[in-house]
Every structure is written in C-alpha cells, then in structure tokens.
C-alpha cells in the first residue's frame, strides 16, 4: 500500500515574478504570456508521486504580490507546511522582497515550515540581474532550499516541488486534516470578525 500525504503550500513574492505562472505550469502544465494579476489569493492542488510510490498532495495558496495585499498573507502562511518564495532573476529588487518574506516567515510562520527560494524566469538569463551564486549563498546561509525555474519553458518546475515533497516529514502523518483552511484549534468556531494579526486594531465602529 502506498502512503498518501497532504501538505499546505503557500507562494509568496513580489508582483509579476511569476508565482501564478509557476503554479499553472506545475498544476496544469500550461503557460500564458499575460495573465490577470492575482487578487487576494488563488487556491489550487496538485499531487506528486515519489519513487517509493508515496503520494504527496499539495494544497497551494498562490498569493497576490502587491505590497498593499501584504496584510492578507498571514491568513495563508499561518498553517502552511511549506512556502515557495519566488523572485525574478531579471529584477534584483525582487530578491530583496523575497528576503523580506523569508524574514517574516522565519518570525511568524510555523517553526517547522520548509522554505524554498525560487529564482524564476531562467529563460531570460540574458537579462539576468541576480547571479546564481548570490542567491545560492543566501539560501545556504538561511538553510533554505534553492532552485532556478522557468514557468515559461517548464525548466526546474516539477523538480522544485518534488524536492520539497521529499524534504517534508513523510514519516509522521501530517496533522492537518483534509482541506482545512486553518488547522482546527480548540473549540471549532471561526471568529469572522477577528482580523489577521496586526490589522485594523483601531478601526472605528461603523454603526
């Protein structure tokens, strides 16, 4: 009997680095040159089968990249088992944004979270602004997985997700139950009035 595991994965990174394209390549093996920007977040799933026939199902939250949406991110990384933080190898500023996300994950996310740093658009290496050495060195210092990918050509895409699947703790059954947006904790009620951390604490009542 093959074992089945299920993990939550969140994609983070600056706007237009190719987060949605990376997921679209991974999930549907498709690519569009122009896709509408992601608003809020999009949810997708994909299953990978490892050599020993273990299957790992990823429940993926693909988040919006613009700074204005940053306050929504905790809702999506809160219970994530793994995160893919994406930058664009042709935009050095996007690596800076990736570093910020990684710092935030290290501070706020589950301490056992597996983080992969992903340099996308490797097909545009002629316009490269971020060297492989620089990104790799940073990833090693922080203990992150690292790879370059091209959502356009497909290069490296399934590899990075498979590598993450292998790195996840496949011995103990994952604690999260199927599909839950947040792990059930304590009494099983969701307070919809509760804001994601750090928001709106002094918003006036709108009676």
């Amino acid at each position: 009997m093959s074992k089945q595991f299920q993990f939550k994965l969140v994609l983070l990174g600056e706007s237009a680095v190719g987060k949605s394209s990376l997921v679209l390549r991974f999930v549907k093996d498709q690519f569009d040159d122009y896709r509408e920007s992601t608003i809020g977040a999009a949810f997708l799933t994909q299953t990978v089968t490892l050599e020993d026939q273990t299957t790992v199902k990823f429940e993926i939250w693909d988040t919006a990249g613009q700074e204005r949406y940053k306050s929504l991110a905790p809702m999506y990384y809160r219970n994530a088992n793994c995160a893919v933080v994406v930058y664009d190898i042709t935009q050095s500023a996007s690596l800076e944004k990736a570093r910020n996300w990684i710092r935030e994950l290290q501070r706020q996310a589950d301490p056992s979270i597996v983080i992969a740093l992903c340099g996308n658009k490797s097909d545009l290496s002629a316009r490269r602004q971020v060297s492989e050495e620089e990104a790799k060195k940073y990833a090693e210092e922080e203990g992150l997985m690292w790879a370059e990918t091209s959502a356009k050509t497909g290069e490296g895409v399934s590899e990075i997700f498979t590598a993450i699947a292998k790195k996840l703790p496949l011995t103990a059954p994952p604690s999260a139950r199927t599909g839950a947006g947040r792990a059930p904790t304590g009494p099983k009620s969701v307070d919809l009035n509760k804001q994601p951390a750090g928001q709106n604490s002094n918003e006036p009542c709108n009676c």
């Binding site: 608003i39 809020g40 929504l72 809702m75 599909g179 839950a180 947006g181």
Partner: peptide, 22 residues
C-alpha cells in the same frame, strides 16, 4: 462554510476589491 473552515476573506476579498469583475 464554518464547518469546512472556509473564511469569507478567502473568496470575498476579490469580490470587493474588483467589484465582481473577475
């Protein structure tokens, strides 16, 4: 929705942000 742990913010955010245009 509550029993499935679906939060309104996970879908209705876009409905408000883009006035249902998506």
């Amino acid at each position: 929705l509550e029993s499935q742990n679906v939060e309104f913010m996970q879908f209705a955010f876009r409905w408000m942000n883009c006035l249902l245009m998506r």
